[in-house]
């Protein structure tokens, strides 16, 4: 590991500690705006626990910041399918997020069958699948199958969208 990349890793982790701190402060500010009326039935009111939570977040953010500065860097979570020798591959993750958001925008207008097909197809391709036809067939089967499965099996009607007359 070169010193440059360690310094960069430190900066990223300090950023995360700052994020924790920010959440802690938000929780604190939000709690302070609640009005607690003292009553026998609710002695500590709605504020007490948020203050404790905010305390945990702020303290752990500061402690995390200190340990990171001291050089105790995080080890990413291991898994049977995870290769930590490589840095995060954003070229895979960003398209995944893109397709996720696309589905979220399309689901009510285009309906689940279309948006779900795009979701599965897009994410599978982003993840490196190169069998276009097979992937498309699987996407369609999954989306259609889940649409009817939820409708017939669970009585849940997923949005049909622009295909509402067809399905």
């Amino acid at each position: 590991m070169s010193e440059v990349s360690t310094a960069k890793k430190k900066r990223v982790e300090l950023l995360f500690a700052a994020f924790l701190l920010l959440i802690g402060i938000i929780v604190f500010v939000d709690a302070s705006q609640l009005h607690s009326t003292y009553s026998q039935a609710d002695a500590i009111g709605p504020k007490a626990v948020p203050y404790i939570v905010s305390g945990i977040l702020v303290l752990s953010a500061i402690a995390l910041g200190i340990t990171v500065v001291r050089g105790n860097l995080a080890a990413g979570e291991e898994g049977e399918d995870v290769d930590l020798s490589q840095p995060s591959d954003w070229k895979v993750v960003l398209p995944l997020l893109g397709f996720f958001v696309l589905n979220l925008l399309l689901i009510n207008w285009a309906g689940w069958v279309i948006s779900g097909t795009i979701l599965f197809f897009g994410t599978a391709i982003s993840l490196g699948s190169r069998r276009w036809v097979l992937t498309l067939v699987i996407s369609l089967v999954l989306a259609l199958g889940s649409f009817y499965g939820f409708y017939l099996g669970l009585g849940i009607k997923l949005p049909a969208g622009i295909l509402s007359g067809v399905l």
């Binding site: 996720f100 689940w112 779900g116 994410t123 599978a124 699948s129």
Partner: peptide, 20 residues
Amino acid sequence: IPRPYLYAGILFFATLGAFS
């Protein structure tokens, strides 16, 4: 099982489940 299908499937069913 090719992993693209596995993880695309997880995202697919997670979305479906949370939405439903």
